[in-house]
Amino acid sequence: MIIDHLDEPLPGSSLRPTPPGVAYTDPEIFTQEQAEIFEKQWNCVLRADSLPQAGTWKTVTVGREEIIVVRTRKAGIAAYYNVCRHRGMRICTTGEGRSKTLKCGYHAWTYALEGELVAAPNLTSMPDVDQEAYGLRPVHVREWLGYVWVCLAEEPPNFDEAVLGEVRTSFGEVESIDNYGIENLACGETKTYDVQANWKLIIENFMECYHCATIHPELTEVIPEFADGLASQRKDGVVHGASFGDEITGFTVDGSSGVAEIPAIAPDQERKYYAITVRPQVFINTVPDHVIIHRMFPVSESRTIVVCDWLFLPEVVEKINAGTLDVSKSVELFHRVNEQDFEACEYTQPSMSSSAYTSGGALVPSEHHISEFHDWWYAALGWRAPEQVRDEQTTAAQA
């Protein structure tokens, strides 16, 4: 699948290096990624409408931490570390539930949905205990596109720059994605994929279409230009999306008509596919009648859980739930793309530990934009990219 690309290949050699194989296999590097990337960036964790009532909560894993996300009575959706402030037991020991308070099952320390400590055995005999200071440790929360985004950093990145900036790169302006009204769409289908591959391989796969003609026959039938191998998010410097084929009437597995079109999309968004990657773990794909959103949750250096939602107009989902409308052809197209992509990543993962891949691989010109992702990755870990080191060495030798 494709997400973004440079207007022109980077200058220089036709082939550019990838990180070495160890970057995809080393548990210590994965631990550093958890600490420096996933625990410091904004992560899209769940749909806001999955917490419909006050007291409804779910637990999610972000980096190495387990987080409670709960709809409060007073403050909307909040998020906390799933750690009791008394002796550290998990407060929520199942994946989801609904309760009036959040109560630890060990010593019954009890917290309001808004986080403060409200009860504990013999608490009245300890008047010096600051109930707010000993409340649950909070996590930064934002809602966008109908999803809950959390950041574990003490000082989170600016959401407008870190998240909405990715939208501007791919759509030209945030208002363009607003046309889809994603926050008002409803989920018609969700599929979860347990991918036995490093999370970076999945991102790299989504960022290029050099593989599309080889493994995506259904997708290239619907969007023929993908068969050329270019991630055509832009043309001549202008955001244009990827056009449906002349005989194609919908973004479906056989190119047949889909469902009711999202009414506010602009003329240049009709019969077009757009895609965005929001680093480090979200892919947003838009077509005229639905939106597909992927959320990645790295589990280890060689395993990643990917949750994919298909979002439609609420009236469409009402018909789906009533059994009067079949959207299986719309869902099947990207489901096949997902399975094809993830299989390719799983066949790639074992080779990352091969001696033949010790120094890494290569990016052809239509993949040169992946170097930008690699540069971001190196910078996030506080490392210098090998090309940067070589350029510095060359400059020093010439001085």
Rank of each mutant, 00 (worst) to 15 (best):
residue 2 I to T: 00
residue 5 H to E: 13
residue 9 P to F: 05
residue 11 P to A: 03
residue 26 D to I: 02
residue 28 E to H: 12
residue 28 E to N: 11
residue 35 A to E: 14
residue 38 F to E: 03
residue 47 R to N: 02
residue 48 A to Y: 07
residue 49 D to T: 09
residue 49 D to N: 14
residue 50 S to A: 14
residue 52 P to C: 03
residue 53 Q to A: 11
residue 59 T to R: 09
residue 61 T to H: 07
residue 115 G to H: 00
residue 120 A to L: 03
residue 147 Y to C: 05
residue 150 V to H: 01
residue 151 C to H: 01
residue 152 L to E: 01
residue 159 F to S: 08
residue 166 E to S: 15
residue 173 E to P: 00
residue 181 G to A: 06
residue 190 T to V: 15
residue 193 Y to A: 07
residue 201 L to N: 05
residue 207 M to Y: 11
residue 209 C to W: 03
residue 213 A to H: 09
residue 216 H to N: 09
residue 218 E to C: 06
residue 219 L to C: 06
residue 223 I to E: 01
residue 225 E to A: 09
residue 232 S to D: 11
residue 233 Q to I: 02
residue 233 Q to V: 08
residue 233 Q to A: 12
residue 233 Q to K: 12
residue 237 G to M: 00
residue 240 H to N: 13
residue 242 A to F: 03
residue 243 S to P: 00
residue 244 F to K: 03
residue 252 T to C: 02
residue 260 A to M: 08
residue 260 A to K: 13
residue 267 P to K: 07
residue 314 P to L: 04
residue 317 V to I: 11
residue 317 V to C: 10
residue 320 I to K: 00
residue 321 N to M: 08
residue 324 T to H: 10
residue 326 D to S: 07
residue 332 E to F: 08
residue 334 F to A: 02
residue 341 D to M: 03
residue 346 E to A: 01
residue 347 Y to Q: 13
residue 354 S to V: 07
residue 355 S to N: 10
residue 356 A to Q: 05
residue 357 Y to L: 06
residue 357 Y to A: 09
residue 361 G to N: 05
residue 364 V to H: 00
residue 371 S to D: 11
residue 374 H to T: 10
residue 375 D to V: 14
residue 377 W to N: 05
residue 378 Y to K: 04
residue 386 P to G: 08
residue 390 R to Q: 15
